[in-house]
Simulated assay, not measured.
Amino acid sequence: MNEPGAAPELLEEIADGVMTLTLNRPDKLNSFTPEMHALLRAALARAAEEPTVRVVLLTGAGRGFCAGQDLGARHPDSGGGAPDLGETIETLWNPMARAIRDLPKPVICAVNGVAAGAGANLALLCDIVLAAESARFIQSFAKLGLVPDSGGTWTMTHRLGEARAKALMLTGEPLPAPKAEEWGLIWRAVPDDKLMDEARALAAGFAQGPTFGYGLTKQAVHAAGHLSFDESLDLERDSQRRAGRSADYAEGVRAFMEKRSPVFTGEPS
Rank of each mutant, 00 (worst) to 15 (best):
C109A: 15
R63Y: 10
M156G: 05
R74A: 14
A38T: 08
G81N: 09
R254C: 10
A177I: 06
S232W: 10
T20W: 03
F141S: 04
S246H: 09
A97Y: 10
D248C: 10
I138V: 15
E133D: 12
I89T: 08
E236F: 15
A6V: 01
A15M: 04
P34N: 02
E90S: 06
T153P: 08
E90R: 14
T33S: 07
A132V: 05
N30H: 05
R200I: 07
L124C: 13
A180R: 04
G5C: 06
A255D: 04
V111N: 04
T33R: 08
A180L: 05
A6T: 08
Q139R: 09
S78M: 12
A45V: 03
A247P: 03
D84I: 01
V18P: 03
G225A: 15
A118E: 11
R54Q: 11
V129I: 07
G113F: 05
I108R: 01
R254V: 10
T157C: 07
E173R: 14
A120I: 08
V147W: 12
R98E: 10
G113A: 07
C66F: 00
M96W: 06
K179W: 03
R41N: 07
G266P: 09
N121R: 09
N94H: 13
R254F: 11
L44G: 06
N94D: 14
A180F: 08
E133P: 01
C66K: 02
A42V: 06
D234A: 15
P34V: 02
L11Q: 01
A120V: 06
G145C: 11
E182A: 13
S78A: 15
E49S: 15
D77F: 12
G86M: 10
A131T: 01
A82Q: 12
E50N: 06
T20A: 12
N94K: 14
N30L: 03
Q139L: 14
L29G: 05
Q139P: 12
A110M: 01
L21K: 00
L185Q: 03
E90Y: 02
G205C: 02
A163P: 01
S31Y: 05
G86N: 15
A177S: 09
V147Q: 07
E12R: 04
L185A: 02
A61D: 01
L57D: 00
R188M: 05
D127C: 09
A203T: 00
L58T: 02
